[in-house]
Computed example of a mutant assay.
Amino acid sequence: MEINYVIVGLVGLAVLILLIWLIRRNRKDRKNLERKLNLSDLEPEKHRDEEI
């Protein structure tokens, strides 16, 4: 049984590209979450008229 190094290389490259894409997306999502949490801490809570 022969190992086809071209296919192994393509699969390895695809896995590497997937990992890089997932890491970049995770960083972007983390930044967005931090920004949303910081904004929610800075903005005062809004009260509805019904509660007054």
Rank of each mutant, 00 (worst) to 15 (best):
39 L>G: 13
37 L>E: 15
24 R>Y: 02
38 N>K: 15
8 V>N: 03
9 G>P: 00
3 I>W: 09
51 E>Q: 10
1 M>C: 07
16 L>M: 09
27 R>H: 06
49 D>K: 10
42 L>N: 03
52 I>S: 09
40 S>N: 09
36 K>N: 08
18 L>R: 08
38 N>S: 07
39 L>A: 06
52 I>T: 04
45 E>I: 06
28 K>R: 11
45 E>M: 08
33 L>N: 04
26 N>K: 12
15 V>S: 02
4 N>G: 03
38 N>Q: 12
12 G>S: 07
32 N>G: 00
41 D>I: 02
23 I>K: 01
43 E>G: 01
6 V>A: 09
42 L>M: 09
49 D>C: 02
21 W>K: 11
7 I>W: 07
18 L>Q: 05
42 L>G: 00
26 N>A: 12
8 V>P: 04
4 N>T: 07
40 S>A: 13
4 N>Q: 09
17 I>S: 07
40 S>K: 15
4 N>L: 10
31 K>C: 00
51 E>N: 02
12 G>E: 05
26 N>G: 02
47 H>P: 02
30 R>D: 01
30 R>V: 03
33 L>R: 12
21 W>P: 01
7 I>C: 02
25 R>F: 02
29 D>H: 01
20 I>Q: 02
8 V>R: 15
43 E>A: 06
7 I>H: 15
49 D>Q: 08
24 R>I: 08
21 W>R: 10
39 L>T: 04
20 I>E: 01
4 N>V: 09
32 N>H: 05
1 M>G: 13
34 E>A: 06
51 E>C: 03
6 V>R: 14
15 V>G: 08
38 N>D: 11
28 K>T: 14
35 R>P: 00
32 N>Y: 01
13 L>R: 09
34 E>T: 12
30 R>E: 05
45 E>N: 04
46 K>V: 09
6 V>T: 15
23 I>M: 01
4 N>A: 01
8 V>S: 11
17 I>F: 13
23 I>V: 11
1 M>P: 11
3 I>R: 14
18 L>H: 12
25 R>A: 00
14 A>P: 05
28 K>W: 14
8 V>K: 12
3 I>A: 05
28 K>E: 14
24 R>L: 13
30 R>N: 05
25 R>V: 00
25 R>E: 00
45 E>W: 02
34 E>D: 11
48 R>P: 00
30 R>H: 03
21 W>N: 11
39 L>H: 12
17 I>T: 12
15 V>Q: 06
42 L>V: 02
6 V>W: 06
30 R>M: 03
1 M>H: 15
32 N>D: 11
43 E>W: 02
18 L>W: 14
27 R>A: 07
15 V>D: 07
34 E>L: 09
31 K>Y: 03
44 P>I: 00
23 I>T: 04
18 L>F: 11
21 W>A: 15
44 P>A: 08
22 L>Y: 04
16 L>H: 01
9 G>S: 15
34 E>Q: 08
6 V>H: 08
3 I>C: 08
34 E>S: 03
19 L>G: 06
4 N>F: 10
32 N>E: 13
39 L>I: 06
8 V>D: 04
27 R>E: 09
52 I>W: 11
14 A>H: 07
